[in-house]
Structure formats: structure tokens, C-alpha cells
């Protein structure tokens, strides 16, 4: 990262020297500079919040809510899903292979590396997508996204990765950079009848109240997934949160794992590099 920051500074200096107005074209260096600016913004707005604590969403920035969360975490309601996911993960497919055969390190402690850019297929691959591709490669039907067993499996895989910081890489491939830029654009674009961008709430108004809820900072916002939400009364994956968020802005949600959502997850996770995985989590 440091190397990228240096490069970004160089570009900035070069731009100033030349007195040139045009913004530098998207590059690995500009992505790294985006990340630094993104993280610095949250650090300076919430100076009392330790960086790793951004893994805890709204609880990082609101003490009374944090107290309720701590009480719920004494015996979190995702425990049943966690057990279910652990059992399912170990269960062999009909062909005798297991999920562990599909992933580096047998699928243990790898959540922080997702999503990644796949140079072969030229697309962003999330953990959820990788799980279903693993199933299909082994002759099994894909799981339904958003809730149920997909949430249980990702809960278990996240739990084995707790404390490991997000480590998302943008390879030196114009398609990877394009995916990152598409995710960034999605994040900052206003949509829906309410005309809100993701950033309107989760950057501009992070920590403030939206009716009864405290808005989570975008930094580290995906670290706790999948989550048990009191509002749902059940588990939900990142897809469930993206689609429900889209609907709340009164825009038409995209299908789960739509490339636009995957690119968004890529952008958000890359912005959160360094924030530790805390999932599975609980949220209001």
C-alpha cells in the first residue's frame, strides 16, 4: 500500500507542477489514493474510534447502542446458523469432495481475501459466488442467495477468519481497475425515489440517526457479514443487505450477485483494507 501512496503523491505533485486541470485517469495509484482519503476521512471524523473497531458498524460510533449489542453478544442469535454452517461445511458432496477442496487453506481463515478479481474470467468473485461455483463444479445445486444455508456457510467461514484484516487486491489488469471504478461509481451515484447514494448515508451521515437507526460508517461496513438482524429476525448475507438497502431507497433491487453488486462489494472491501473480519455479526 505504501508504494501506491507514494505513487499517488507523485502524480499529485506532477499535476500541480504542470498546473494541469484534468483529473488523473483511474490507475492503481489513484485507487490507493482513494483508499487513503476514504480511511482518513473516517479516522478524522471519529478520532476516538480505534481503527479495528470500524468492523463493528454502528456500534463503533454509538455508546448506548453498543451496550445493547454487548448484551446480545453474550449469547448471539446467530449461534444456530454458525453451527449449521460448520456442519454443512464438513459434509461431503455426493462425489465425496467437500467445500474445503475448493478453497485455499481448506476454506479456513480466508474470508478477508474476498472478493477477489479473477484474471481468468475477468470478473469479481465474492465468497458467496465461490461457494455456489464450488457446489456446481461438484455436481450440486447452487444455494439460494441472501439467507438460509448460504448465510450459515458464510457465517462459519467468516468466524474462522475473525481478526484477520481485509486484504483486497486490485491486480495490474485494466479489467480489475474497471470493476473497482464501477463499484466506486455505484457507491457515489444517487438512485431511487429518495435519490440517495450509498455514500449519502454511510459516508456523509455516518453515525447520525436515520429515524430510529444509527447509520453505520462505510469503512468496515461489510466486515461483520453475514448478520442476524433483529429487524429480519433471521440471518442475511451481503446480498440481502444490498437488495434491502436498494429497496429502502425505493429503487429496484438488482438480482443477488449481479455484477454491479459484486463490483460494489469489491470497492467497499478494498476501501476497508486493514479492518478486521468480525463476522458473523448482529445488527438492529
Amino acid at each position: 500500500m505504501r508504494k501506491f501512496r507514494g505513487a499517488a503523491a507523485l502524480i499529485l505533485v506532477a499535476g500541480l507542477l504542470a498546473g494541469a486541470a484534468p483529473a488523473p485517469a483511474a490507475s492503481l495509484a489513484s485507487a490507493a489514493a482513494d483508499q487513503k482519503a476514504f480511511q482518513d476521512n473516517f479516522r478524522s471524523r471519529f478520532p476516538a474510534v480505534p481503527f479495528a473497531d470500524f468492523a463493528n458498524g454502528p456500534y463503533s460510533v454509538n455508546a448506548p447502542m453498543r451496550k445493547q449489542w454487548e448484551e446480545i453478544m453474550q449469547f448471539p442469535p446467530y449461534d444456530f446458523a454458525l453451527d449449521e454452517g460448520k456442519t454443512e461445511f464438513a459434509k461431503p458432496f455426493a462425489n465425496g469432495k467437500t467445500y474445503a477442496d475448493c478453497f485455499p487453506n481448506g476454506g479456513i481463515g480466508i474470508r478477508q481475501d474476498f472478493p477477489y478479481f479473477d484474471g481468468k474470467t475477468g470478473e469479481v468473485v465474492t465468497l458467496d459466488l465461490a461457494i455456489n461455483r464450488c457446489r456446481q463444479a461438484n455436481g450440486e445445486k447452487p444455494l439460494k442467495y441472501q439467507t438460509g444455508m448460504m448465510a450459515s456457510l458464510t457465517a462459519y467461514m467468516a468466524e474462522t477468519s475473525r481478526g484477520k484484516p481485509f486484504d483486497i487486491k486490485i491486480p495490474d489488469d485494466p479489467r480489475a481497475l474497471a470493476a473497482y471504478e464501477a463499484g466506486k461509481k455505484y457507491f457515489y451515484t444517487r438512485r431511487g425515489q429518495l435519490n440517495f447514494a450509498c455514500a449519502s448515508c454511510h459516508v456523509g451521515a455516518a453515525g447520525q440517526r436515520m429515524r430510529g437507526d444509527i447509520l453505520a460508517p462505510a469503512l468496515g461496513i461489510l466486515a461483520a457479514f453475514p448478520i442476524y438482524r433483529s429487524d429480519w429476525g433471521s440471518m442475511g448475507t451481503i446480498d440481502r443487505r444490498f437488495t434491502s438497502c436498494s429497496a429502502q431507497m425505493r429503487s429496484t433491487p438488482l438480482p443477488p450477485q449481479d455484477p454491479a453488486y459484486r463490483n460494489l462489494e469489491y470497492f467497499l472491501s478494498y476501501m476497508s483494507n486493514g479492518v478486521p473480519i468480525s463476522g458473523p455479526g448482529t445488527r438492529p
Binding site: Q146, A151, S152, G233, S234, M235, T243, S244
Partner: peptide, 18 residues
């Protein structure tokens, strides 16, 4: 998960939830 969860559409509108 409890089987009933399947009866609920995952995208839950705020107003409906309220």
C-alpha cells in the same frame, strides 16, 4: 435456519417491517 424464514421475501421494506 427456521423454515419460516423462507416465507419472507429477503428485501424487507421499512414500512412493512414497521
Amino acid at each position: 435456519m427456521h423454515p419460516r424464514a423462507d416465507h419472507h421475501p429477503p428485501a424487507i421494506h421499512t414500512r412493512r417491517a414497521a
